[in-house]
């Protein structure tokens, strides 16, 4: 009971802080929107290459851009915990009986909520540009859930880095360092068959590929359950690792 009660108020706090700092929202949405508007134009001829697996490059790349958006907003999760550590607010909470788990849960639930809203914005823009979800509302909800789940697993990385280094620059630095290689060496922006062999090999082990394949299936083809279940298994594994690390480091910080 206390856990739900406290999580609710900490969730609200995170959202209020986010809405009142629109610059943060702008920064995390800026890149995906540039990709959506410019990158997809730049590569639009891709679609005319034989064997391209989608009608347009926009339709193909939108799932990848959704993932990129989840990446960049998850990065801010780690910096927010560093902010609370730096300002002393975390310890101000710790001298009250507030549920310790709620401090992390409030953070994570607000991250998931935020990435869902941002995904809707991107999907809305993509729709205006001419691509839609073939699986309809059910598929849309599953896409949002998949992205949110992926975002949570990724928040775990940035939270862990934040708790370990206690430094916002490190969170951004390490985050950016991870983001682009992982994104480019996955099926997020390029079909597997178009890649050189060595990148194909990397891509086959890249969790981004699994996630993006599931989202892409839901957007373009239909409910391909094998792909979807594989994605959830991979994200689940990452979540266990990253959130486990976060929990461990959080316990160390609060003791």
């Amino acid at each position: 009971m206390t856990l739900i009660h406290d999580t609710r108020y900490l969730f609200m706090r995170s959202l209020k802080k986010l809405i009142r700092n629109p610059i943060l929202l702008f920064f995390s949405l800026f890149q995906p929107i540039i990709f959506l508007l410019l990158f997809t134009q730049l590569f639009s001829k891709f679609a005319s290459i034989p064997d391209f697996p989608a009608e347009s490059y926009l339709a193909f790349a939108t799932p990848g851009i959704l993932l990129q958006n989840a990446f960049s907003s998850a990065l801010q999760s780690g910096t927010s915990i560093v902010d609370d550590l730096d300002s002393g607010y975390l310890h101000k909470m710790l001298v009250t009986p507030v549920s310790r788990s709620a401090i992390l849960l409030g953070r994570l639930t607000s991250d998931a909520f935020r990435v869902t809203i941002q995904s809707l914005i991107i999907l809305g823009l993509a729709y205006l540009l001419g691509t839609s979800v073939v699986t309809g509302i059910g598929g849309l909800l599953l896409i949002l859930a998949t992205i949110a789940f992926f975002g949570l697993a990724w928040s775990g990385i940035s939270l862990a880095i934040g708790l370990r280094t206690k430094n916002s620059e490190s969170v951004f630095g390490i985050g950016a360092f991870l983001t682009f290689p992982l994104l480019f060496m996955s099926t997020a922006l390029t079909p597997l068959s178009f890649m050189p062999e060595w990148i194909q090999n990397v891509s086959n082990f890249n969790p981004i590929s699994y996630t993006v394949n599931a989202v892409r299936a839901l957007m373009l083809n239909g409910y391909e359950w094998n792909t979807i279940i594989a994605a959830y298994a991979v994200i689940g594994l990452i979540a266990v690792l990253t959130l486990g690390a976060t929990l461990y480091l959080f316990r160390k910080v609060i003791n």
Binding site: K17, Y89, T96, P97, V98
Partner: peptide, 25 residues
């Protein structure tokens, strides 16, 4: 109370106090 002033600057005064009350159930 710590030596450095610790409040949530993004929240209003009322919200800061109310949140502390929620922490205390």
């Amino acid at each position: 109370q710590s030596q450095e002033t610790v409040i949530d600057a993004d929240l209003t005064g009322r919200e800061n106090l109310t949140l502390q009350g929620h922490f205390q159930q």
